[in-house]
Design a protein around this nucleic acid. Structure first.
Lengths: 329, 329
DNA sequence: TTGTATGCGTTATCAT
DNA sequence: ATGATAACGCATACAA
């Protein structure tokens, strides 16, 4: 291994002053070509690499690093989000340290603290399902912060969310437009923000169509695809459902599983998933623009890192209804 | 925002020496309880957070950070890998900076350089499809390095790969055991390491079964699912194939697409994918243990970070054949 | 244009 | 047990 050569080593090797090497490394122009050449030589013979960690502790300098706390990187939703953030950040010279909270508030808080200690320049966070500590108890200064996917009451933070209510409303309305009158709702628990929002859209669509609400068509206990499959089967057999709206992709998968044994019903799901296009007929979905949500978050946080003092904003991004066939029979 | 309080600020506030605060923060025990309490108070009133970047430049101290360069985080294969690495790393106190190369050698090299400058303690790398610069041209010292998924001739590096050849061989043999004699091979280009290895397994299985090799059954130009679908359709119509072995999950998806219009053939694919379990019949696959590959990589690199000088090893992890029904009719 | 001296926030040495 | 001082690798006033 050996030790890492420092700027001082380069200076000695090239027979110039430390400061001249610093200038060279930082790409300043006012520098004697002769010395520059000597320095370049010294750098390559020594294999010098600058130590960004050391540079970052100087006043006015930063780590050129962003922190990101999500639920679970193995979940395609989060990995696509993370990739979008990474891409935009890198286009502006930033690296991303991402960490998974497993939706656990304690773990989430630990990660936030660690990232703060690592002196990331900005922070993007998807608040965990099991709420963590109140942000107001974290002593300032806190670097630029973006709340992603789920809003929270943090005065200084920008917020980027999807129009969950509008999306669900549009999806349900499409089913109704196709003649369905008894649309079943299948989802996870309403204690989850996105579920609440989407469910509100379901209710809105029914109301706007003058369709009476029937509680027996609603399931909000489907935590897994298997749960959802059972709920869908039940809605078909016992509740006289004539269509299914799936509140997330696990619920959609559950519906497909249920359809194997029980025939099929018109179906629209929230959130896209890989299998949606392969099933027959392909599954129609309303889905947020995940890459754009990621990109925008990174842009907002980096603008603030760069000095923007614009008042905090909440961006609610529209969803998109993709009709693939499953919305009718 | 305001500035970040430093250890010095805490010392002044608590009326103790800088070093005492350092001791307190680093959890040393030999410290007067009275002073400790004063320090704790000062820390919380000032909202002091330790600056790990500053700490890391001290000799013998490190960034407690791992670098990871993969192909594309939005690809489930890589995101599951990354998640496994992240989990293990965090269990040992490390954060992970991951970056996507898009399989582009130039971008890959840029990222490696940047991570080296950021002074990550260890590096895990999936060498890009389009080869980057030779590692031997990177001047030492290079931190502990693990080559993941694809081997490369780097003397000091540990290597973690899957048994691609053995896996493909097992999958093809299963099709043969079910009576198939004309197994078509559908894959991406053999310029890709994993493709080459898997294809070798295909050839081995044929040879061991005494089945003559027929070039007309082989397609190695399927870069997308659509390409693969066309190739599968062609194999069914023109080449008299009686089974399909898909060299990766895009090829598997292509086969499913082709089956829509052309009936179906026994199918086994390499690499698992979400839709595999939803299709009817569910798709059988041979797949590497991705989480274990990630975990092992992180373990190897962190053991070296912790001082292990064990000679470099190559771990070839076994694959698993999951039979779900598609292997017969 | 080049160099000297100082400081960033932290830990380590060595005295007290 | 505690503290003054130096050092880590780097950048920046300020001098030369």
């Amino acid at each position: 291994m050996g030790l890492n050569p420092t700027m001082n080593d380069v200076a000695r090797e090239a027979n110039v002053a430390l400061k001249t090497v610093s200038r060279f490394v930082n790409g300043e122009t006012n520098i004697n070509p002769i010395l520059a050449a000597r320095i370049a030589d010294a750098i390559s013979t020594l294999g010098y690499r600058r130590n960004l960690a050391a540079a970052s502790i100087r006043p006015g300098w930063t780590s050129k690093t962003l922190g990101l706390v999500i639920g679970d990187l193995a979940n395609p939703y989060y990995s696509v989000l993370t990739r979008a953030i990474e891409s935009y950040a890198r286009s502006r010279g930033y690296l991303v340290i991402s960490a998974s909270s497993d939706e656990n508030g304690v773990q989430h808080d630990l990660l936030v603290d660690r990232l703060l200690e690592q002196r990331i320049d900005g922070l993007i966070v998807v608040p965990p399902t099991e709420a963590g500590r109140d942000w107001s108890t974290i002593p300032p200064p806190i670097p630029p912060l973006v709340l992603l996917d789920r809003p929270l009451d943090v005065p200084a933070a920008d917020v980027v969310i999807a129009d969950n209510t509008g999306g669900a409303r549009e999806g349900v309305a499409e089913l109704v437009r196709n003649g369905c009158r008894r649309v079943a709702w299948i989802s996870d628990s309403p204690s989850i923000y996105t579920v609440r929002e989407r469910y509100a859209g379901y209710r809105q669509a029914l109301e706007e169509s003058g369709i009476p609400f029937d509680e027996s068509l609603v399931t909000t206990t489907a935590h897994t695809s298997e749960d959802a499959a059972a709920a869908v089967a039940n809605a078909m057999r016992s509740s006289g459902a004539d269509a299914i709206f799936a509140g997330n992709n696990r619920a959609s998968v559950g519906a497909l599983l249920a359809f194997r044994d029980n025939g099929r019903l018109p179906l629209i799901g929230f959130d896209d998933f890989e299998a949606a296009q392969l099933s027959t007929p392909a599954v129609s979905v309303v889905s947020p623009d995940i890459p754009e949500m990621g990109r925008l978050s990174a842009e907002l946080v980096l603008d603030r890192v760069a000095g923007s003092t614009r008042p905090p904003v909440t961006h609610m991004l529209p969803t998109k209804l993709t009709l693939r066939g499953s919305e009718r029979v």
